[in-house]
Design a protein around this nucleic acid. Structure first.
Lengths: 271, 271
DNA sequence: CGCAAGTTTGACGCTGCTCAATCACTGTGG
DNA sequence: CCACAGTGATTGAGCAGCGTCAAACTTGCG
């Protein structure tokens, strides 16, 4: 798609701080628990880390590729996406961030951002300060390990999407996309009782994710509807035939590592 | 491309051990020095880590996706590549490993392999034991930081290639591929005086890297020759017009981070 | 010398792109 | 309450980039 990067200027600082006693469900804790079993002190530390929160509006930009990273964002509610434009306006979307996802730890290590992160809908994020995060990693090896796992899964997802773009045709690509999204949505409990879930993308975003045009995406989506596999309309997706969907893309979700915590870690040093 | 995964069984153990005094150029040290300035004790530690070496033949498989990782390989000489097959035989190549590249630290963190690593020519690798590596990371923060940087650059390369597959046409894709390869080759001093370098791939490998067919790759390569941009024949590449090559792909090699060591690291903790 | 692997060529066709118009939905202001 | 605008979805016609199939040629190697 061809468009000049449209950017809403990030607003002031309507920050909310939840003091120590904050005790609600925390999507980062739930995520980390998929990789390591956090104890009470660790969950307390994570709550402390994610205490500073902020509500942001659709179309705001969380991270810009020309800026130095100063903190890490945790998505609490809403959906963010990572993308970059080529000079001629073509856009590649690298992936989507849902509640519990961190936005990018990588930038911190490099001390520069190589792509943008935007918001697809009104969202809520936590701002994690780098020194605090570093401190928590040193004090709590389990937290360090969970963060490493999250980073590694991120790049497994990248590889899977590379394979998707390189080897599959449009029908398979879109099938695979929905397989991945539903698996991730299910893991964070965002699927409704009737099997539907909300997906605040436009067909154009999907096109820029998969290297297709909007027109073609639209036609393939009709085919999915016609074949009774899934229906996506008004930001709501409903999967009608999950087995068929997964067989279309030959989907194997192992790369997402959404299952139970690993029994025995590879490295003693990371208890 | 459609083919059943052809695998040469990994052979016995013709291992060479270079005792402490080993003092040649070490590609891992050179690579790490691009990110952090290693001191004498750190270079000593890296030499010690990479002391166990092994020569392997073309087509041997270093890492298989169904195995548990037991150690990390460092490429010393030769070229390795990372890939995965779909059940129907389509193959996606995720990237190439040159001397100084590590083969995959990620596997270790996950405690499982999600893709294969094969050799494109007779090669030489060092076997790094995990406990030793962990120990070195703890003792030498600079080594830890360099390894983190290497991992982060790896995923920056993945993102760049995702954009390549998603947004560029065949001519641009191949152009971008050669831009990246020459930049990396130059950084490790593998470019000959006349500007040529050896690239032990077949056109089919390039096709499976970029999501094209051999036939089409062949035709686009002819175009590159015709336009006097580059010539690739008998595993030798020579770039005839570097500026034109880079403008075809709108190449910006910043994502490879091949320049001087970073001045000030983002995190004090990783001095 | 002869085989195997890799490269090159040609003819043909399909997948997915382009351009352009129309339709549907939502929010806005009069 | 409706006209209107803007955004996104949908449709159609035509085309081209890239894939498929199949054969010939070239190179490396035992």
């Amino acid at each position: 798609m061809f468009l000049e990067p449209p950017h809403a200027a990030p607003s002031g600082d309507p920050v909310t701080i939840f003091p120590g006693g904050y005790n609600q469900a925390n999507p980062l804790i739930e995520r980390m628990n998929k990789f390591v079993a956090l104890g009470a002190s660790e969950t307390g530390a994570v709550r402390q880390l994610t205490r500073i929160r902020r509500s942001l509006r659709m179309n705001e930009t969380l991270v810009r590729e020309d800026r130095k990273p100063d903190r890490i964002y945790l998505i609490l509610k809403g959906v963010a996406f990572r993308y970059r434009y080529l000079i001629d306006g073509r856009r590649q979307i690298f992936g989507y961030l849902f509640p519990g996802d961190l936005c990018d730890t990588q930038f911190v290590i490099l001390n520069e951002c190589d792509h943008n992160v935007g918001l697809l809908c009104d969202s809520e994020v936590a701002l994690i300060s780098l020194p605090d995060l570093m401190g928590a990693m040193v004090t709590f090896p389990k937290i360090e390990r969970a963060l490493l796992m999250m980073a590694v899964v991120d790049s497994a997802i990248l590889r899977e999407n590379l394979l998707n773009l390189g080897q599959r045709d449009a029908f398979e690509k879109i099938g695979h996309f929905f397989c991945e999204i539903t698996a991730r949505m299910r893991a964070i409990g965002q699927i409704n009782a009737d099997g539907s879930f909300s997906l605040p993308l436009t067909q154009m975003e999907l096109a820029d994710t998969l290297g297709l045009t909007v027109v073609h995406v639209n036609r393939i989506l009709q085919r999915f509807r016609l074949e009774g596999v899934l229906c996506w309309s008004r930001r709501q997706v409903i999967i009608l035939n999950q087995p068929k969907l997964e067989s279309i893309a030959a989907f194997n979700g192992a790369y997402l590592h959404l299952d139970a915590p690993r029994e025995e870690p590879a490295l003693q040093a990371w208890g």
